[in-house]
């Protein structure tokens, strides 16, 4: 029964990382940019929740969503759009600088001490089925995660903008020669990434209630590990990678004895290096040759 409990927890955490990973993957798909500042979207939303403490919950979530999307669009417009034709290395350095800038601003404004977000804390309560103790949050994570992933999939499959995003991810030059506006597609990707990041934030908030300047970084780095391991080229493989990394992290954390647990991060980073070297297109993608890294 203990293992079923672990499994349920792992699925819940996997869903959250899948949301973050899909956001990273979509942006990479249409821009060929690994956005190291993705986590700062969650951070920005987290401080918004802190600042709006006392407002009705729905309003707080919507405000956080607005702030996150605004930060995402500013990031794209000011720092990344001018680098559209630059090398991937240059943009990687740029997103690293953006990440650092946002964290420094947060540190100056709110200090390195954590601030409590205080959102949906009731979701931490649990009900029991036999020996299983299931938090409402777990259900929420799985349901919200599933619904949002489904919605984004539908969006990509069914809408014109979704189709244009997939085409751009596959071959930007040809997509544009067919009339696809790069800016529309990129803005679309950043908006969706912002929505997904906010959703993940809202679901992280009850279990990690304290937001610090590094709050988003920790989440995004792990999600990025998942994206690389899963395969960045496709939204589906990036999402699966994110889920896998959240799931594996939770499972191993529960299963490993404490002395070995502390080296879990090293194992995950090591996995990233191995995947980059051996199978750069990712574990969850069919082709092994087409790597654009």
């Amino acid at each position: 029964m203990k293992y079923v409990q672990y499994l349920i927890d792992a699925i819940a955490l996997g869903s959250l990382y899948a949301l973050v990973a899909l956001g990273i993957g979509l942006v990479f798909g249409v821009m060929r940019i690994v956005n190291l500042a993705h986590g700062e979207l969650l951070m920005a939303g987290g401080y918004t929740l802190y600042e709006t403490n006392g407002w009705p919950a729905v309003l707080r979530v919507l405000t956080a969503l607005a702030v996150v999307i605004a930060v995402a669009l500013l990031m794209e417009r000011l720092a990344l759009r001018p680098l559209r034709r630059a090398s991937p290395t240059t943009t990687l350095v740029m997103t690293f600088a953006v990440s650092f800038l946002l964290r420094s601003i947060a540190q100056k404004r709110w200090s390195a001490q954590g601030k409590t977000m205080n959102l949906f804390t009731d979701l931490n309560q649990a009900f029991t089925i036999g020996e299983l103790r299931i938090k409402y949050l777990t259900i929420a994570a799985v349901v919200v995660g599933g619904v949002l992933l489904g919605a984004v999939t539908l969006f990509l499959d069914r809408t014109d903008l979704g189709l244009q995003m997939r085409a751009t991810a596959s071959d930007e030059r040809i997509a544009q020669a067919l009339g696809v506006r790069a800016n529309h597609v990129v803005v679309g990707a950043f908006v969706i990434a912002g929505v997904l990041a906010t959703a993940a934030l809202v679901l992280f908030a009850p279990q990690r209630p304290v937001v610090t300047p590094d709050f988003g970084l920790q989440i995004a780095i792990l999600a990025l590990v998942g994206v690389v391991v899963g395969g960045m080229d496709k939204p589906s493989s990036a999402t699966l990678g994110g889920f896998f990394i959240g799931f594996a992290n939770s499972m191993l954390f529960s299963l490993l004895p404490k002395g070995q647990r502390v080296f879990l991060d090293s194992a995950l980073y090591g996995l990233v290096i191995v995947v980059l070297l051996v199978r750069p297109s990712g574990l969850f993608q069919r082709e092994t040759v087409t790597s654009r890294l």
């Binding site: 030059r173 544009q176 020669a177 067919l178 009339g179 696809v180 506006r181 790069a182």
Partner: peptide, 8 residues
């Protein structure tokens, strides 16, 4: 013009 504008 950019590529997409030429197309359109």
């Amino acid at each position: 013009r950019s590529s997409d504008e030429v197309a359109r």
